[in-house]
Design a binder for these strands. Sequence first.
DNA 1: CTGTTAGCGCGTTCAC
DNA 2: GTGAACGCGCTAACAG
Lengths: 330, 330
Amino acid sequence: MQDVANALGVSLSTVSLALSGNDVVAPATRARVRDEANRLGYVYNRSAANLRTRSRDVVGLVVPDITNPFAAEAALGLQDALMPDGRMVALANTRERVDTQTSIVQALLEQRIAGLVLIPALDTSAADLALLRRSDTPVILMNRNVSESQLPFLGTDDERVIRLAVDHLRDVHHVTSAAYFGGLQAAGPQKARKAHFRSLMQQYGIQDVAIWDVPSAPNALAAYEAAREILRTAPAPAALVCHSDSIAIGVLRALNEAHVDPSECSVIGIDGIVDGVVTVPSLTTIDVFPSDMGAMAGRLLFTQSANQPASGPLVTPALRIRESCGCASD
Amino acid sequence: MQDVANALGVSLSTVSLALSGNDVVAPATRARVRDEANRLGYVYNRSAANLRTRSRDVVGLVVPDITNPFAAEAALGLQDALMPDGRMVALANTRERVDTQTSIVQALLEQRIAGLVLIPALDTSAADLALLRRSDTPVILMNRNVSESQLPFLGTDDERVIRLAVDHLRDVHHVTSAAYFGGLQAAGPQKARKAHFRSLMQQYGIQDVAIWDVPSAPNALAAYEAAREILRTAPAPAALVCHSDSIAIGVLRALNEAHVDPSECSVIGIDGIVDGVVTVPSLTTIDVFPSDMGAMAGRLLFTQSANQPASGPLVTPALRIRESCGCASD
DNA sequence: CTGTTAGCGCGTTCAC
DNA sequence: GTGAACGCGCTAACAG
């Protein structure tokens, strides 16, 4: 900056004012400054500016695994919500490990991020998130709640998700048995969905097939392997509700290998990833609008005060009927 | 920092030294400082430190679309290579738009990133990347080269990729016709692969089916739609080599709808994404090790001088035989 | 081992 | 309109 000031014979502050587009400096000088600046190859040092103004412009996105299409689509939505305001996103994967999650969060706080969108690793406890409570950085938990953490949460209406799936299975496919598959056994966010599922099964008099209640990492490959093992020892139930679309994709593959098609076993995923239309069979799913969720998270970070109710806004899920539930073969 | 210094009755610099783990300060005091620091809820301001030390610790990763599994897996690999050194990654999606790419790159440079890993948008020209040449920030182009840009490139051996695919099609499937599908028509990185494909077709006397030579966005959904249109008017060739695994997944779906199975039309993807084992049919592909590529990019950024040959290291591709080429049904 | 001083690159008064 | 001075939070020289 001093260089361009010297080159033009003006003061350093004139340059600063000119570059920030302040109208206190003459339009003519402003143009001259800009031109000289990039003639000299000068690039603005935004982090120095941020230090001085105590402003921040990068928001952290920490997810278990960006390879999961849900996380990727949410990342896209988040960026869309942030870029118009000149913000960027810093990405980090925890691989479902709480310890790397805490060290990542720590690093992000040290970087003075403007906000944090977090899909917590599976066995995250409220204590693990304590440092975030005290911090003045706006945080929002996405898609997986840690109820006792007292942190704002943006997710979906789990009860409604389950009801949409189970009602469809009962009303159009008349299933007599079903199971909920996916997620780790450990206490965590899927406990809620599983509980809703069980209660609905009981209420509708549908058999809840217990053998599918096993832990499995939340990705397609692990789900495939787990499902294959189960199918080796037991026939498929009439329906499988999967904790995520990734998991459903693995299940679809296992079912295909076992030669059971959608008319014999309906599978319904949860998420609504875009590539669900392109699987074989295409994926019937409960859409929770991953991209919108990411965008909403980005907006919520800055539109609200940080001290809000623990259970924040919910996105309304929608049933997307495709082939994997057997609707195409009926 | 001053607060914790006062609280302990020591000097500010003692605190600084203690927190950075410098052995010039007594281990006992070091511990006392650390304890008092986080008792007071103090968090280190790394960006202020970076300003002073002229060091940088976040590297930019800009990709067309993080939703593409190749990009996501590369991101994971990149993070793995970076985190041990205490570095983080800033992610940005260009959606294949050159203008948003340049504005993103500009923003990243203003943030004073430590380095940049870039998968260029499809019609990126050397001129679009000129500002990166002048910058003192290490840059590495990944997976798509912009030959005239003079920037270091990390990719795969395109000729070998094509040869692995075509040799397999000829030697084990004895195909008499084939096509290369995917990517935009525009001048760009896939020109090389397409050229190698054509020359090999000619050399082997295999018919190159021209109707598949149409532009399509590089994602599964767009590929599916394009392939479906083509299949409406023409029978499938004996083989389809797809520019990426994502594209292959879309093609698989289109083929399935047209009731042509792998024994009639072999499809081979390029990338080696992990979910390729879980598609139906599972995806035969040329593996270019996306995750390793990301990790290599991270290491290369800092192990080499920036002024290196335009065409950097290549990863050696490998054929992964699965079902989609028809090997399972033979 | 500790305290003092200066300065990283920038934004902001407040005089001129 | 312009320039001088100060400070953001931290590290790096020193001298004690």
